[in-house]
Design a protein around this nucleic acid. Structure first.
Lengths: 341, 341
DNA sequence: TTGAAAGCGCTAACAA
DNA sequence: TTGTTAGCGCTTTCAA
């Protein structure tokens, strides 16, 4: 890395002169045109770029804390803004003086994103979307700054969670309350334990009332994924009698749900008359309200959880409290057109 | 700010001992339990938090560049992920070694977000969503780091733009090609010049063929906004004859379009049979594809533009090239169900 | 088991 | 018009 010193040596001026020129203070300090030119040229030639760390250090500005948010680099376009907005609002409401930095990473390869550099440059990590491998990596290593884990459990780090049992059973109970008997789950490959819990709990509630047959369709966590899964369900139910074909669907995400709604619409299957549908609501509520039909969801309290992540981080940073506690949030059912109360 | 020195003074140990203890290296370096305890307590009591700038400076890690993205703190949940994903992909594809930092700000108050601190801590700013006031602020001030402006014009800074004339005329031409004669624009209060250009150009094309009456409905740039605007249009066209009621609608954003689609659906107005609809496509294309009906758009090339922002930034940082050039992208029409080709 | 000293890159005050 | 010096907060030898 080229520094101001390198330029000083190269041009045979002093470091302070170089500093003055490069900061555009030449006029004020009466640096000769010639000197300016030489220094500019050298900076260009040597590829100088300022080191902001040392500028900041030198500046004596109050030490701002940088919180780095590790987020799945792929897909789930829906969710980041919701979570991020929750963080922002929390910052403002609580007066936290943090700077938020977003570090995208590939799920399953968190290890590669947590470099010496990211560790050094940050006062705390909030880890989101971690897979089982990622969690294993975190559990088996020590880090010099506090971590808060979003939506996963750990016996090493503080975590902010939602009650996954609740999510599954709430959805099932609504369907059961409607007397529905042929449930289907559309979901994607579970990349964290909570997903399985939600689905198993959903199944369990139906099993309890004697309905053993809860079909599952695995697809991508995308709109296209939901669309294709729904087409599959339509095709297979066309072969069956009206009585035994699906009458209610749980979608593991809003992405999947929106895709599925499109497929049912195109095939003239009326929701909620022919089929009731509930999504595990991870998307912006506005989009759920204005889909056709509007989407009933078990709403994941992401904004509240984002807020909790920051509070917990604040406690970790200020009180040195790194105990592996967990705060758990409840998801609530929001009835809309795709499945009334 | 409490530093390691403060703790050293307070505990009457040396700074190096404090450093060792606070970094958890006590065992390795044989620091006595008692000393550890005293130092930990003091750190807690004095509210010590490490200064990451100086850690980084000391670490001799290669000087990573931090690019700060200034983004509208409010609404437009759709767009950030699209732009951000464009940035990420660009990072990877071009091998730029930048760290991205997102700084939310309130449009119209960019001034408040650009603090000494943000300036010092960043090697470059990408400014998005700037209002006219924000642009005026930027134009009339000097900054010590390079700025690249997204989707606005400037005679002081490099900018990355789209052709707003094109956007408006493309949409109009498609409608005109269908022989439609009663256009309506649903838009929100223009907070930047490009919006007016798009709309004026749309109007102009219709005017050219003798259609002077292009109605405009102003609403919020939200799904609810689009919904309400559409209801208004429905109400007023119910009073008119079939011939004079609107037959095509340009929506200024996907938010507005999705909201409007819901309203038309609820009122049994078939799109595209009764009414053709084109949106200025700023949302994720997947959502446009799976809406009901799928949404025809003049697609804003946000990913390409994000890429261009980074390329331009790279040029600014590495080649000291701060000339106020502009790169302009063309928007293309994507025909889907809401308005065929 | 602890401390002293040097230095990371930069800038402000002062000197020349 | 330019240079010298000291120091921002931290860590790493090396010494005690």
């Amino acid at each position: 890395m080229t520094t101001i010193k390198d330029i000083a040596k190269y041009t045979e001026f002093s470091a302070s002169t170089v500093s003055i020129v490069l900061r555009g203070l030449s006029e004020k300090r009466n640096i000769s045109k010639e000197t300016q030119q030489k220094i500019q040229d050298a900076a260009m030639k040597l590829g100088y770029t300022p080191n902001m760390q040392s500028k900041l250090l030198r500046s004596n500005l109050p030490n701002m804390h940088i919180i780095t948010l590790f987020w799945d680099a792929n897909a789930r376009q829906y969710i980041l803004p919701r979570f991020f907005k929750g963080l922002q609002d929390s910052l403002i409401r609580n007066g936290y003086r943090y700077e938020l930095q977003i570090m995208p990473y590939n799920v399953g390869h968190l290890k590669d994103a947590i470099t010496k550099r990211t560790l050094m440059g940050s006062n705390g990590f909030i880890i989101c979307n971690a897979s089982e491998e990622d969690m294993a990596y975190l559990e088996s290593n020590d880090f010099p700054i506090p971590l808060v884990i979003y939506n996963r459990y750990s016996h090493k780090y503080p975590t902010i969670n939602m009650n996954d049992y609740d999510i599954g059973s709430t959805a099932a109970d609504v369907f059961i309350g409607h007397g529905l008997q042929h449930p289907v789950i559309i979901t994607s490959k579970a990349d964290f334990n909570g997903m399985s819990i939600r689905e198993n709990m959903f199944r369990y509630r139906f099993n309890e009332i004697g309905i053993k047959d809860v079909k599952t369709v695995i697809t991508d966590d995308t709109l296209m994924g939901g669309y294709k899964a729904a087409l599959k369900i339509i095709a297979s139910s066309n072969k069956k009698s009206q009585e035994s074909s699906p009458d209610c669907i749980l979608c593991a995400s809003d992405n999947i749900a929106f895709g599925a709604l499109k497929a049912f619409h195109e095939n003239g299957i009326h929701i909620p008359d022919r089929l009731k549908l509930i999504s595990i609501g991870n998307g912006p509520s506005e989009q759920e309200e204005f889909s056709i039909p509007s989407l009933s969801v078990v709403n994941l309290p992401m904004e509240e959880m984002a807020d909790a992540c920051l509070s917990r981080m604040s406690k970790a940073i200020n009180d040195f409290d790194l105990s592996p506690d967990s705060k758990e949030f409840k998801a609530t059912f929001v009835a809309r057109e795709s499945c009334p109360e």
